[in-house]
């Protein structure tokens, strides 16, 4: 039930933002639409609703957004330089890394961040054993532990505080 209420609130906020500036008619339609979606799919949204209350998670999430944007910018400059370089300096391969994150949301965010950061690209996840297969445009090490340290570590610590 809590999960449904959270989904309703988020859905309603997004509805109102999409239909800016707000008016009464729009808000009534939004209540129906968000309520309908929340009633149908609310149970799937989150399994541990009490985590939405904790404010320190939001602070860590803000920090994560800045870290992510910085890494994303570096990634883009790196890939752009590789692409325009006439020698095409790439050294690609698929490596295996390990993560200690368990929850679905955290794994999704980790995979997405890895995809959008320097030269790495998530191909498959095995959630039960915490293994990610990653395509690396410039392989520095195909060893499991070393690759984990280079790719996963910087995000894992922050994501753990946000989602676990």
């Amino acid at each position: 039930m809590k999960s449904k209420i959270i989904l309703f609130i988020i859905g309603f906020i997004i509805w109102m933002l999409l239909g800016w500036p707000p008016n009464l008619q729009h808000a009534l339609a939004g209540i129906f639409a968000a309520g309908f979606v929340a009633a149908l799919t609310g149970d799937m949204f989150t399994r541990r609703p009490h985590r939405f209350i904790n404010p320190s998670r939001y602070l860590w999430f803000g920090y994560y957004v800045f870290l992510f944007l910085w890494e994303c910018l570096k990634a883009n400059i790196d890939v752009a330089l590789r692409v325009v370089n006439p020698k095409l300096p790439i050294n690609p391969g698929i490596v295996k890394v390990k993560t200690t994150l368990k929850s679905d949301t955290a794994l999704t965010f980790l995979a997405n961040s890895i995809t959008l950061t320097p030269g790495t690209f998530c191909i498959d996840i095995k959630p039960e054993s915490g293994i990610l297969y990653i395509h690396w445009i410039n392989v520095e090490s195909d060893d499991l532990d070393k690759a984990t340290k280079l790719i996963v570590d910087k995000f894992e610590k922050v994501l753990k505080r946000v989602f676990e």
Partner: peptide
């Protein structure tokens, strides 16, 4: 994968 790829742990 491309011929000059280094490794393919997934395969």
């Amino acid at each position: 994968l491309w011929g000059k790829s280094v490794c393919d742990k997934y395969a």
